[in-house]
Design a protein around this nucleic acid. Sequence first.
DNA 1: CCAAACTGGTTTCATTTGTAACCATCGGAA
DNA 2: TTCCGATGGTTACAAATGAAACCAGTTTGG
Lengths: 148, 148
Amino acid sequence: MEPDILELESFLPYRLYRLADTVSREFSRIYKERHGLTRPEWRTLSGLGQRGMMTATELGEQSAMHKTKVSRAVAELERRRWLTRTPDENDRRVEHLALTKAGFAAYREMVPLAKAFERELLARLSATERTAIVTGVAALEQALEEKS
Amino acid sequence: MEPDILELESFLPYRLYRLADTVSREFSRIYKERHGLTRPEWRTLSGLGQRGMMTATELGEQSAMHKTKVSRAVAELERRRWLTRTPDENDRRVEHLALTKAGFAAYREMVPLAKAFERELLARLSATERTAIVTGVAALEQALEEKS
DNA sequence: CCAAACTGGTTTCATTTGTAACCATCGGAA
DNA sequence: TTCCGATGGTTACAAATGAAACCAGTTTGG
């Protein structure tokens, strides 16, 4: 193991990125083929489906998206009539977003597919490995929160 | 736990992606600030530094990059005179890429920084957690290889 | 030998993304 | 009040990306 050489294949940031990229790419096929959604759009749909009513800022925080991504995703979902905006009574800068019936229908259709995807992914691991990935990811998440 | 709701925060594809994104973003500051490299450029540099001499195709395989990314990264590094191309003797479509002295110097400067980054990241975890993330990632990597 | 299929690599074009500037509104502090 | 800095959200512009077309060279099957 030469000390002045970096082995990309075992370098954690690289491995994590590649892994996430592969998984995410594979999963995206589901909502892309099904409804022609982009990832930001899917996350918006999924965030609102889960929580019911949120502002754009809250959406961004929950789903880790830059505000421009949120803005564009919301615009597109609105164009499809999958969500509506309701101006806030007290603060006229704020809009409350919520899924329409059609939007919620799409959401309900997606949920089992997403769950199945995750289930099948984890099914390829042993019980120990499943625990490992979940623990490891959780630990790293927490470590990163604290630092920044 | 309502069965028809998906909790984004605990959905593995989402967590993985966000984690990788955060880590990668933080790490990218190092090579971005230091040398103004993009991620494909950094990977190219790092791949050639590690292996010595490769074709563009090999580079793409090793570092999981689309061939257009490789092509552009190589072009940029060549412009900086950090790498050179040598035409293959037998197959005139192929070029062998290698770092120049300047390119290798940049590589040698980056390696300790990369290693320190990884070390400090892992240092925030307990020994058990470190094992967990490494095992988990390896397991998922393998599971994905097999399937596809 | 030759056409057809294939491969390494580049380029073009449309789409996605990030940064920064921006607009409107809000909350204080003077 | 009135100004000023912060905040919610959108837009403009430049850079990064991916898909597909492309070019040159190579292999294969007839």
